[in-house]
Computed example of a mutant assay.
Amino acid sequence: MSTTLPNVWHLRRVAETAAKACLICHKPSSSVMITPNNKDFFYVCPIHLQDRHFCSPIIDAEEEAAKKKAEVMAREIEKVKQEYEEKQKRKKEKAKVKKDKDESKEDSKDSKDSKDSKDEAAKGDADKKDEKERDEKIEAIKKAQGMGTPAADDSPRIFALHKNFYQMRIDRMRNMEAAKRNRQRLQDPSYFPSVPSGGL
C-alpha cells in the first residue's frame, strides 16, 4: 500500500445521525473531507473550511463553467421575458389608440358592442399565443444550455489542506500502514526465531 496521498479533498455531507467528532474542535459534525480515491477521510466543521490556515478552496474549472452557463441562461430567459412584456405594452397602446378612434366615430351602440366583444376575443387569443411562444422560447434556452435549475449551494466543494495538516494526514497513513505490516509479520510463524535444537 502506497503512502501517496493527493492534497485534494472533496467536501461531502452525511446525515445528522451519522455525525462524528470534528478533527479540529471535536464537536459533532456532518461534513466530511474525503480524497478522490477514498483512501482517507475525516470529519470537520464547516466553519473551519473558511480558515485559510487550515485549508484553501480549489477552483474547479467544470464548476465555474457550469456557473457561467447558468448565468448566461438566466440572462437569456430575462431577455425573453422583457421582450414579451414590451410586446404586451405595444399591444395595449395599439388597442387604446384603436379604441379612441372608434369612440371618436359616432357609430350605433349595437355595432360598437359587437366590435368590442370581437376585439376582446381576438386579443385574448393573441395573448395566449404570445404567452405560449414565450414559454417555448424559455424551454428552448434551457434545453440548449442542457441545464435544469442551478445548484443552490455556491460554497466551494474542493479544498487543499495547509501543509501542516496535510503532513499530519500523511504521517497518520504511514503509521497505519506500518502497524498493518507489523500485524502481518506477527502472524507469520517464520518471523520469530526457532527454538534452538541440540543437547547441552
Rank of each mutant, 00 (worst) to 15 (best):
K91D: 10
R13K: 13
K142G: 00
F192G: 05
P36Y: 04
D40P: 00
I158V: 08
E78P: 00
R13S: 11
E93C: 04
M176N: 15
D188H: 08
I58P: 00
I138H: 00
R90L: 14
A65L: 08
E177I: 14
I47Q: 06
A121S: 13
K128W: 02
R169Q: 09
E71G: 05
E85Q: 11
D60P: 02
E62G: 06
A70S: 09
A21F: 05
S114W: 13
I34A: 05
S114Q: 09
L200G: 10
A122W: 09
C45D: 01
K20Y: 03
L5Q: 00
F42A: 01
S155E: 13
K129E: 14
K81P: 01
R181H: 08
S2A: 11
T149D: 12
M73C: 12
K79H: 10
R169S: 03
G124N: 13
N37L: 05
P36V: 04
P46G: 08
Y43S: 02
D100A: 10
P189V: 03
K96G: 02
L200I: 12
E103V: 11
R174W: 06
N175F: 05
P46A: 08
I138S: 01
Q167N: 08
D130I: 01
Q145C: 08
I47T: 10
E139Q: 07
K68L: 09
L161W: 00
V97F: 06
D125T: 13
W9T: 01
A178Q: 12
I58C: 04
I34K: 05
E177W: 08
P57F: 00
